[in-house]
Write a protein that binds this DNA or RNA. Structure first.
Length: 356
DNA sequence: TCTGGGGTCCTAGGACCC
DNA sequence: TCTGGGGTCCTAGGACCC
């Protein structure tokens, strides 16, 4: 039987800010876009627990957060602080696991099946990890322990902050069934609404739904949903090394209709993507541009080259060419972006590459 | 209320190849 | 007049996650 841990750092960005600026302790700290007195365009990246008391949540428009809590401490993200903190913590966690999988800047899975003999031992182990992270990095995390990744993940979110939740094999259904379907990773607003229309609200409802009905509605995802609701998840904990794509996009402060101005920004984004490509010694094959108009309708256009390259001019010229048809109508543009994919390292690109 | 920026994965049609 | 079956790549869009 497997013993999987999911470690989730508590309100990571605000917690790092408070660690660096202790005078902020106890205050509602909101990391995200500039609220600009309620006129800001971005969203909340992460809110401290004090800020959450005002109803502020991740991904909420920053303008709405401002209305809920005008006296909060609003900060722009400082990745130069978060990335080292994350790396230090991930190193600690990796050292304690047979198998380790980072799931973002602030969370990770550990397979500890070979290190503990049962869930009681796993609970002690998880507790000592929480202490070690707190002692060495002065940050709290919450941990979920379960027989698979999904249960561990839902459990890590069950008691926060600095919470430990252990769900034994025989407790899985009792733990999952009362919860809302939205707690299942992969069920977002769309799936939630579709399920609600089928009369399915809790994981219990989902678990007892006919698999054929779910498959009919959602395809293979429906089959998967039924398994997850019944606590079945065979995914392994595996560290992934491969980057699949590199991109940059930006939302303008004001929607733009000036073609020259938009193309200048597109060039800058291409330069940033290119710098990232060079730094990682990648070559790329596919270029994708993205455009979002004033009212949020979004389009992508992509082009796969006949060769791998790392050439900036090729990237810029293709990006301009791909976006060009979208700028003819003089519609107001909210966002543009550039992304490269089909990445290869030089020695694996088959010796058939573009210039440089 | 009005929606960031970094990504991953999936689907589906069409081209193309054997 | 009726037109396979499998596999892979390309392209566009969409859902979702942190």
């Amino acid at each position: 039987m497997r013993v999987i841990l999911h470690v989730d750092l508590d309100a990571f960005f605000p917690s790092v800010e408070v660690r660096e600026h202790p005078e902020l302790k106890g205050r509602p700290v909101i990391v995200g876009a500039d609220p600009k007195g309620g006129k800001g365009r971005g969203v909340v990246s992460s809110a401290s627990y004090e800020a959450r008391k005002f109803g502020i949540r991740s991904a909420m428009p920053i303008s709405r957060a401002w209305k809920l809590c005008p006296d909060g401490v609003y900060l722009r993200p400082h990745f130069d602080l978060y990335i080292p903190a994350s790396k230090n913590i991930m190193r600690i966690l990796r050292n304690h696991a047979d198998r380790f999988e980072q799931g973002g800047i602030d969370e990770a899975y550990l397979d500890t099946s070979n290190q503990v003999k049962d869930f009681d031992e796993a609970a002690k182990f998880a507790g000592s990890l929480m202490e070690e992270v707190l002692e060495k990095e002065k940050l709290t995390c919450s941990i979920g322990v379960g027989p698979n990744k999904m249960v561990a993940k839902i459990a890590s979110d069950y008691r926060k902050p600095y919470g430990l939740t252990v769900v034994r094999e025989e407790e899985v259904r009792g733990f999952l069934f009362p919860l809302d379907v939205r707690r299942i990773p992969g069920v977002g607003p769309k799936t939630e609404r579709a399920l609600k229309e089928m009369g399915i609200k809790t994981i219990s409802d989902l678990a007892s739904a006919k698999p054929e009905t779910l498959t009919g509605q959602f395809g293979v995802w429906g089959t998967r949903l039924h398994q997850l609701a019944n606590g079945i998840d065979d995914r392994e904990v595996i560290e992934e090394y491969e980057t699949k794509s590199i991109g940059r996009d930006t939302t303008f402060e004001r929607d733009l209709d000036d073609e020259e101005q938009i193309l200048r920004v597109l060039d800058e984004l291409a330069e940033e993507v290119h710098a990232d490509v060079i730094e990682n010694e990648f070559r790329f094959k596919t270029i994708t541009v993205r455009i979002r108009y004033q009212h949020f309708d979004t389009h992508t256009r992509s082009k796969s080259l006949l060769f791998y390259t790392n050439d900036l001019d090729i990237l810029k010229n293709n990006s301009r060419r791909l976006i060009h048809p979208f700028l003819r109508g003089r519609r107001k543009v909210r966002l543009v972006g550039v992304r490269v994919s089909g990445l290869a390292l030089p020695e694996r690109s088959g010796g058939f590459t573009g210039s440089i």
